[in-house]
Design a protein around this nucleic acid. Sequence first.
DNA 1: AAAGGTTGCAACCGCATCAGG
DNA 2: ACCTGATGCGGTTGCAACCTT
Length: 287
Amino acid sequence: MKMPSPFGKNNNNVSSNYKMRKGLWSPEEDEKLVKYMAMSSGQGQCWSEVARNAGLQRGGKSCRLRWINYLRPDLKRGAFSSQEKEVILHLHSLLGNRWSQIAAHLPGRTDNEIKNFWNSMTKKRLRNCSSSLTSPNASNLSLEPRDVMQGIMPMREPNMIAMFMDSTPSASSTVAQSLPLNRSFDPPVLSASGYVNMPKFMPQVGMDGDGFYGNCHGIFEENRDLFIPTLESISIEEDNNIKVESMEGFETCWQEGDDLKVEEWDLEELKCKLGFLSPLLSPLEGC
DNA sequence: AAAGGTTGCAACCGCATCAGG
DNA sequence: ACCTGATGCGGTTGCAACCTT
């Protein structure tokens, strides 16, 4: 555990004139805040008042953050357990970067903590991926064990991302041209978190050592976050519109607490059904 | 042992939303 | 309806500890 510097990053703000302090919290400040929170039972908080009444030269926002992320008595400490990691992966595959919602499912953990965990994990995996691609055996992709968490397949296998971004530079435009879908179209982009955001209503696909997997996000209604039809339940019509054969299992959008399952998609069948995506899928040949 | 690079994480920033005046 | 302050959230930054060379 790092010891906080008593003067934070910018120690010029320690000066008088009631300038708000910034930077790391000192043990004394922590003590003041903890004492005040204990005294006031944490009820009816107005954080700017907390800051004032506790005698802290901090903004309410800073106090709130410090309390929530560090001083709260019910916080867990230490590394995430493997169970917690599974929950994070599972929920992230469903919710995306909604850290506070994910944190709500992990008692004692903060959104900040989860976000940091996720970002460092993503960085690691991207690094691994790029090193495997730049190696002489780049075509022989070294795939990590599949991340199957409680039946949900994370869609953004870094190797897949790399293939989209590096091996098939024209893939997105090719697909865009080949999709006469009567909806707006956004090309795949690499998000800040290192994930490929596939266009809405396009299948999100990934791969692992055992084959191919995927799902479809938001195929049928723009404002619903998550639909996961099985491959068997969809067909591609002549005009390349995606049609659902069977609504079984996804009449409704995902709701908190639902236990969703994604069917594993067979590569050959997927290619057959989604022939117009072949420019994207062809790099996977031989993997 | 020292220098440089990497990692983990605390904290800040900016924006969105909401409530009260 | 508009303004203002408080709050919440996600993205980003910066620093200390750790690791590698």
